[in-house]
């Protein structure tokens, strides 16, 4: 069974684009990253999966159940962390947590206690006094306390300090090892390359690539750097050309032979050809092609 599967999922807000023909497939037990710049359609996809908004066309299934038919059953197995968690003003953290547990019809006191301790969250505070990071923690406890099968996390680490981010990912890794599926959206590339097994890249409402994080990194693209080059070489397959302190650097996706031929009549002191790091690959997806 797939944890998440979408089929040509499309959402338009009136005439403006949300997502178009999104096909996502997340295996059960996966740690899946969903990457894309702001406004690419990450939240739209997530909100559609949760039944907050309704697709214009296409379909999706979460934990094997159709989002249009079995919303309640899906939600009872899902822990959701919104990118901007908002709570009822005037309520205390402990009341929010217990209201969330009641809506799940479960007793989560023990688990909530453990989570609050690990995240250093004071449950006696009023939610409207909390900083962004602390509000995020309340959201995290709400998403984790009922021990769901699937975690859907929308930009989970924004607002958390580095120590808390680490603690949070430890929590997620533990849950993942216990068999739960983690699906998180982010635009922090280092997080994705560090923790996720699979990832999908979304831009302008379309999925550009979806594969294992390793394979996404090996796209056949090389980063070529020429030290003290006399001029910028004219190579047809070179992209993302930068010139800095006399050294020229570019991404190259053509054949090695052509590269050598192109460089033959150029003088330079030294040159390196490396695999670009994952971040660079994703940047490559991010940046709109000029033509």
């Amino acid at each position: 069974m797939k944890a998440i599967e979408t089929n040509q999922l499309t959402k338009f807000y009136g005439k403006s684009r949300g997502i178009t023909n999104v096909n996502l497939s997340v295996e059960e037990g996966d740690f899946f990253g969903f990457i894309g710049p702001n406004g690419a359609g990450k939240s739209t996809t997530i909100r559609t999966l949760l039944g907050l908004i309704f697709p214009t066309s296409g379909s999706a299934a979460v934990l094997g159940k159709s989002i249009s038919q079995n919303r309640i059953e899906i939600l009872s197995q899902v822990g959701y962390l919104p990118s901007e968690a908002m709570f009822y003003s005037g309520m205390r953290v402990r009341d929010i947590l217990s209201y969330s547990a009641k809506l799940h019809q479960r007793d989560c006191k023990e688990e909530a206690g453990k989570l609050c301790e690990r995240l250093e969250l004071d449950i006696s505070r009023r939610v409207d006094e909390l900083s962004l990071g602390n509000r995020k923690k309340v959201g995290i406890v709400c998403a984790l306390q009922h021990k769901p099968k699937l975690y859907i996390l929308d930009e989970p680490t924004s607002g958390l300090d580095p120590l808390m981010q680490k603690e949070f990912y430890e929590l997620l890794t533990e849950r993942n090892q216990e068999g739960a599926t983690v699906f998180l959206s982010s635009h922090v590339l280092s997080e994705i390359s560090r923790y996720c097994k699979h990832a999908a890249v979304i831009r302008d409402g379309k999925i550009l690539a979806s594969d294992s994080v390793e394979k996404l990194g090996h796209t056949g693209v090389k980063r070529v750097t020429l030290q003290s080059a006399e001029r910028v070489p004219e190579i047809p397959d070179a992209k993302n050309i930068t010139v800095e302190n006399g050294s020229v650097s570019f991404l190259y996706s053509g054949s090695p032979k052509q590269l050598l031929t192109s460089l033959a009549d150029l003088s330079f002191e030294d040159f390196t050809v490396t695999d670009p790091d994952l971040e660079e690959v994703f940047m490559h997806y991010y940046v709109k092609e000029e033509n």
């Binding site: 949760l50 939600l75 899902v78 908002m86 009822y88 809506l103 799940h104």
Partner: peptide, 11 residues
């Protein structure tokens, strides 16, 4: 107050 998102993502 954006609490609808909180409420309606519960079962």
């Amino acid at each position: 107050e954006h609490t609808a998102e909180f409420l309606l993502t519960h079962p």
